[in-house]
Design a binder for these strands. Structure first.
Length: 901
RNA sequence: AGGCCCGUAGCUCAGUUGGUUAGAGCGCUACCUUGACACGGUAGAGGUCUGGGGUUCGAGUCCCCACGGGCCUACCA
């Protein structure tokens, strides 16, 4: 049978086929009744309106690698997918979309707007999940969830009501962060701080009944319109005589008290502070202590409001300029100094956030945080890399209450109703018939929705059916692992831990792996909005999804950000191509072999492969034994690396094995065997080769699912076996391990490399066969080389490798390479470049002499001998002995060359 | 202000408890279109680990200081 296999790997030909196949066959549907230990993982739900960016690509690659790896090791595996309703971003997207069509969303009204968003979701909201399928994520799509589905909403209401009943959720007027563009309050975490060069304006407040002025310094002069006091430190003697008097607030001509409060720092500014309780967190506290009025001088959209008097309707920054001008005109501006301070920006709109006093819903965090801290302290949740633990503790120990409400239409509406008569609050799971306090039937639901992260915080258990004790919940909760970016450690991870423990009594996951961020060449975080992102979908198309996955994995060292470039992708694609061509080699040559009557079904069925390695005349051929030993070592390395989230190590191990061992040495070595006239010899070679290849495919599958699936289907498989993904991850069998074979092949590789090195030095035509001599004082190596002479002759392109006794080894002519254990020589009559050879020898001698000297010094040191472990000393001594032999040979050689010239 | 991380070959990065001449990929040099693969093969050059001090028999690895870069947390008006 002649197999068709393309000359180069063409991912576009095969990826869509397998992506469809995996979904259609529902291959990754979890079964609660399946045996085996459980591995469950929930996806960090991406924004439903979003599309796959490079950060997702990394995150999802890591999740899928671990998922597939566990599944292949026969865990009962669940990878639960889903999306997030992403309140603010989604609302912004749809608002803009409507605006593009000339529609102001306000005019639609709340219900119609929500309908529009659901419509938008139905049209555009499956983009990301479609892309996830395209990159081969092995999710259980039958369990896909959406944070705003009726099912999830029920859980959100349940949690809200319980927290309210426990007194952990409350509604209060407090100082909050207001975004004048998004028109909503934000939590502290949604405010990003940026150092900016600003000013300190020193303003003179006349003291009533005196000719004195009290000078205050401020960074935001426009807030003075809302001042209701001036404060000084009670211990500040400069001002004690003024405490109790009144100041006349300039521009407003309002008399405000001068009071003493310990919060004031006499070092800063003038030591006197204007107090604006409605616009500054500190001032708010002072205001509460002294029962001051809270005057909000702004409007929701960042303009000055009616209480700002003459400045009403001005933009807040225009008002600032105008106020400064007016103060200067009145002679009340003492001075202006440069001042850098960290301004708070809205994470999404990047506008300056306005601190305002406002009535909102809050969640008390301290009682929730304590058990969450303890769980991590006790190691019930492992945080990887562990230096993030400190960040977690630090934040959790200083946690502040969480502003839950958002002035949006898209999200989980707060389940609180107010009676119109008395404004009593009724919090309930479903719309109540009457006010819980006064019985009024005239109820209105709170218009606000909950912070999106509130529903995300419930994700690990809400998706598994909580509060019901469903089969899924019982089987898959707590989940095994969470993989997400460290940038949302507080936003999301910490909150899930708190909510999970509080409501289920168990941690939501056993471990958190915080992956790196992907950066651009210039070190910035890749961002679509800045146009600095690489588009993974386009790159997958160009290089292949397997290449992308492998590339990201091979760079994903814990705790290190990734700088991705097309160079690296190309290198990963080359690897995919290498695998493809190794397969091509197998099948093309098998066609020839089959002409002699053999069949793939006799050489490579699963049953045949399972019994490898095969022997020839009683022994496993050396290179085959070596191959399986290398396989076993690689499997152990990969298992260990993946168990510790060291994706890069696992990927590099697979790379080194497949390319460096399997292709460069094993395939090359057995080429003649495969077509040997000795059918038995050939059959053994083929069987071992296929068994190793099959194991290699399974080893690579978690990283490169498409390519390996495609090639796996070309090998005979068990009846009914649908996918390599459901096959077994290779096992490092004890009988595969073989130290001796590893040593022996290593020695032969050294001999071959030495001979090739000579050839390159002599600039011999790669096809020109030459004669060579080999000599050793080690009988073991002598026998080994003798037994594998054919292979060496082929690898080094020799007419003949003569093995000669040491006394007869001609070190005087031709080109020589020596190690401590052996010498090789290529007879070569033309004048070699003796100058270059001498330079090379000198350099090597120099290096060796340095190494020898440092070892002699160490070994001669009595303190070293008494304190260093025996193993180290023995090792040093052995190496030293070898290096001395090598040095002597090099020196002999050099002096001969010098004599000849 | 507090905390964390990084500085290793031209580039991007590995280097697990301190231990024998510090590794990889890309790039570079030379030779080679050989029947799996030029998205390839073979051989090779290239770093003393930012600088300084210390601990130790021994430091890229631990400690201190400096310089350079990045990140997080924080209500100094």
């Amino acid at each position: 049978m002649v197999r068709e296999i393309a000359k180069a790997y063409e991912p576009r030909q095969i990826e869509p086929r397998w992506a469809d196949f995996w979904v259609k066959e529902a291959l990754f549907k979890a079964d609660v009744n399946a045996p085996g230990p459980v591995f469950s993982i929930v996806i960090p739900p991406p924004n439903v309106t979003g599309s796959l960016h490079i950060g997702h690509m990394l995150e999802h690659t890591e999740i899928d690698i671990l998922t597939r790896w566990h599944r292949m090791r026969e865990y009962n595996t669940l990878y639960l997918p889903g999306t997030d309703h992403a309140g603010i971003s989604t609302q912004r997207v749809v608002v803009k979309h409507l605006m593009d069509r000339g529609i102001d969303y306000h005019t639609l009204g709340r219900e119609e707007f929500e309908r529009q968003v659901w419509k938008w979701k139905a049209e555009a909201g499956s983009e990301i999940t479609r892309q996830m399928k395209g990159i081969g994520e092995s999710c259980d799509w039958s369990r896909e969830k959406f944070t705003l589905s009726p099912e999830m909403s029920r859980v959100v209401r349940e949690v809200f009501v319980r927290l309210y009943e426990e007194g952990l959720i409350y509604r209060e007027k407090r100082l909050v962060n207001w975004c004048p563009v998004c028109l909503t309050v934000l939590s502290d975490l949604e405010v990003v701080h940026e150092e900016r060069q600003g000013h300190l304006w020193y303003i003179k407040y006349p003291v009533v009944g005196t000719k004195e002025f009290l000078v205050v310094a401020t960074t935001r002069p426009e807030t003075m319109l809302g001042d209701t006091a001036v404060a000084v430190n009670p211990e500040d003697e400069r001002y004690t005589h003024l405490v109790g008097k009144k100041a006349l607030l300039p521009l407003m001509n309002r008399e405000i008290p001068i009071l003493a409060d310990a919060m004031v720092d006499h070092e800063f500014g003038t030591g006197a502070v204007k107090i604006t309780p409605a616009h500054d967190p500190n001032d708010f506290e002072v205001g509460r202590r002294h029962k001051l009025a809270e005057i909000d001088v702004m409007t929701d959209d960042g303009k000055m409001g009616a209480p700002a008097g003459a400045y009403a309707e001005m933009d807040r920054f225009e008002a600032r300029k105008k106020i400064v001008e007016d103060l200067r005109a009145l002679g009340l501006l003492e001075k202006i100094t440069e001042h850098t301070n960290a301004v708070g920006l809205c994470e999404r709109s990047k506008t300056i956030v306005e601190p305002r006093a406002s009535t909102q819903w809050f969640c008390k965090m301290k009682p929730l945080a304590e058990p969450a801290i303890a769980a991590v302290e006790r190691g019930e949740i492992q945080i990887v890399p562990d230096n993030r633990r400190e960040e977690y503790f630090n934040w959790m120990r200083n946690i502040r209450d969480w502003t839950l409400s958002r002035q949006l239409w898209w999200g989980h509406r707060i389940p609180a109703w107010y009676c119109k008569e008395n404004k009593h609050v009724t919090v309930a799971r479903e719309k109540p018939a009457k006010c819980a306090t006064c019985g009024s039937a005239n109820l209105e639901q709170d218009p606000d929705v909950l912070d999106t992260w509130f529903s995300s915080g419930l994700w690990p258990f809400s998706t598994l059916g909580w509060p019901e004790e469903t089969a899924d919940f019982k089987k898959y909760y707590p989940t095994s692992l969470l993989i997400t970016g460290y940038d949302i450690l507080f936003f999301w991870v910490a909150r899930m831990i708190m909510m999970g423990i509080h409501f289920t009594g168990k941690v939501p996951f056993r471990a958190v792996y915080l992956h790196s961020l992907v950066r651009t060449g210039s070190g910035e975080k890749m961002s679509k909005s800045k146009g600095t992102g690489l588009d993974p979908v386009a790159l997958n198309h160009q290089y292949g999804t397997d290449a992308m996955r492998f590339c990201l994995a091979s760079m994903a060292a814990p705790g290190t950000d990734i700088v991705l470039s097309e160079d690296k992708l190309a290198s990963a694609r080359n690897f995919a191509n290498k695998i493809w061509n190794a397969a091509r080699f197998l099948f093309v040559n098998l066609d020839k072999f089959e002409e002699g009557g053999a069949k793939l079904e006799e050489l490579a069925t699963p049953e045949v492969r399972a019994k490898a390695p095969y022997t020839y005349r009683g022994d496993v051929p050396l290179v085959d034994a070596w191959m399986f030993a290398r396989l076993a070592a690689t499997i152990e390395l990969m298992n260990d690396a993946l168990a510790n989230y060291r994706f890069h190590e696992a990927a590099q191990g697979a790379y080194q094995f497949f390319w460096g061992d399997f292709c460069d040495w094993h395939i090359e070595w057995v080429k003649p065997e495969l077509q040997s006239a000795d059918r038995e010899r050939a059959t053994v070679a083929w069987k071992n080769l296929f068994a190793a290849f099959d194991a290699a495919l399974r080893l690579l599958h978690p990283f490169m699912p498409f390519l390996t699936e495609e090639l796996w289907h070309q090998l005979p498989q068990k009846a009914g076996a649908k996918s390599i993904a459901l096959g077994q991850f290779p096992e490092a069998f004890e009988h595969w391990k073989n130290k001796q074979a590893v040593c022996e092949v290593g020695a032969i590789q050294e001999v071959v490399t030495a001979l090739r090195n000579i050839r390159a030095e002599l600039k011999l035509d790669p096809k020109k066969k030459v004669a060579a001599e080999f000599s050793t004082s080690d009988a073991g190596i002598g026998a080994l080389v003798q037994a594998n002479r054919g292979a060496i002759e082929r690898f080094a392109v020799l007419t003949e490798l003569r093995i000669v006794p040491r006394q007869q080894f001609d070190g005087k002519s031709g080109a020589v390479r020596s190690t401590a254990k052996f010498d090789v020589r290529v007879a070569y009559s033309d004048t070699a470049d003796a100058t270059a050879e001498r330079a090379r020898l000198k350099k090597e001698i120099e290096g060796l002499e340095k190494a020898i000297a440092s070892k002699e010094r160490q070994l001669g040191d009595e303190t070293f001998r008494s304190r260093a472990p025996e193993k180290i000393i023995k090792g040093l001594e052995a190496t030293l002995a070898e290096q001395r032999i090598e040095l002597r040979k090099l020196k002999d050689r050099l002096s001969q060359l010098e004599k000849n010239s």
